[in-house]
Every structure is written in structure tokens, then in C-alpha cells.
């Protein structure tokens, strides 16, 4: 049964791990820890929501724990939102999912986690603040900074792509 679950969900869960990890090696560790947690807590799944959603939450929490443990102190520094321009990442449209994931994985740890939790997982800044034990303002500013960082990276990516042509 465990192998069946692994075969069914491993690709999707590894996709999540890659988004939260800085290196594929870290993603592999998160995948392993996440599945161990899933197998160890199967009896706790009440069946009220979707099983995939339940697994997803476990993997997101494992990824957050992984970075807390690894970096000892979480890489998010308290900051204020002022001075951070709110950019729209319309340039994302031109990139393939693999390229976007690669760019996200290159984000600094704090930016990456907040970006994933807000933009992809759909948590509010209030929820993210509670999860990461930071202020709501910090979550907002980290998100704005991550967008600015990504915008810059996409520009460079495009320049590089045009230069190759």
C-alpha cells in the first residue's frame, strides 16, 4: 500500500519539494521525510478533505521544518514594506513551468518560502506570519522583494535567451 501511495503521489510531492528547496538534494531529503510522516500518520487522516490536500500540507510543513532545522535561524529578517515596489510578474507567461520552478528555487530561503506559501499555496500573509513566526508586515515585504528579485532574474533570462539567438 505504501509503495502504491508513493507511486501515485511522488511526482506531485517532489514538485512541491523542488519549489521549496534550494538544491535537488534538499528536495530529495524533504521528499523522504515527508513520505515518512505521511506513512506514520495515515491513521490521523479523517477523510474530511482530499487525501492529496492532506499530503500537500504535510510536505509544505516538512519543507518549512527542514529549512528551520538546517539554517538554525530562519533567514527572514524583520523588515518594513516601505520602499519595495509592487511589481506584477507578467513576464512569467513566457516561461515554462520547469523554468519558473528553477527560478523560484534560486530565490533566497526566506523569499522563496513566503513566495511559495502566498503565490502558489494561497495562504494569507496573516497565516504565513503565524506559520513562520514573523510579523504580517515582514511576510508582505518578503513577498514584494521576492517578486522584484524574480522580475530581475526573468529580465536577465530573456536577455540571455535573446543573446543566444
Amino acid at each position: 500500500m505504501q509503495k502504491m501511495l508513493y507511486e501515485k503521489f511522488s511526482a506531485k510531492m517532489y514538485g512541491i519539494c523542488l519549489r521549496y528547496a534550494h538544491h535537488p538534494e534538499d528536495a530529495k531529503d524533504i521528499l523522504q521525510d515527508g513520505f515518512m510522516k505521511v506513512f506514520g500518520n495515515l491513521s490521523k487522516f479523517k477523510g474530511s478533505g482530499s487525501f492529496e490536500g492532506w499530503m500537500r500540507r504535510i510536505f509544505v510543513n516538512t519543507a518549512i521544518e527542514h529549512y528551520r532545522k538546517k539554517n538554525n535561524t530562519y533567514e527572514i529578517q524583520e523588515a518594513h514594506e516601505e520602499g519595495v515596489t509592487n511589481k506584477d510578474l507578467t513576464a512569467f507567461d513566457k516561461l515554462a513551468a520547469d523554468d519558473i520552478v528553477k527560478l523560484i528555487s534560486e530565490l533566497p530561503n526566506g523569499y522563496r518560502t513566503v513566495f511559495n506559501l502566498f503565490a502558489i499555496e494561497g495562504f494569507s500573509h496573516k497565516e504565513i506570519a503565524a506559520m513562520l513566526k514573523i510579523s504580517e508586515g515582514t511576510s508582505k515585504s518578503q513577498f514584494a522583494r521576492s517578486k522584484a528579485w524574480l522580475q530581475e532574474k526573468i529580465k536577465n533570462h530573456e536577455k540571455h535567451a535573446h543573446g543566444m539567438e
Binding site: A11, K12, K28, D93, I100
Partner: peptide, 19 residues
């Protein structure tokens, strides 16, 4: 925030073959 919706749709079900 149209990009936000697009990125969410594009990456929420992103899959990659595990090692």
C-alpha cells in the same frame, strides 16, 4: 494580480520525476 492566478494554476499541480 492576473499573473498570480496564472502562476498558481501553472505550479500548483507541477510534477517532477523523483530521483
Amino acid at each position: 494580480m492576473e499573473w498570480n492566478k496564472k502562476i498558481k494554476e501553472g505550479l500548483q499541480d507541477y510534477e517532477a520525476a523523483p530521483p
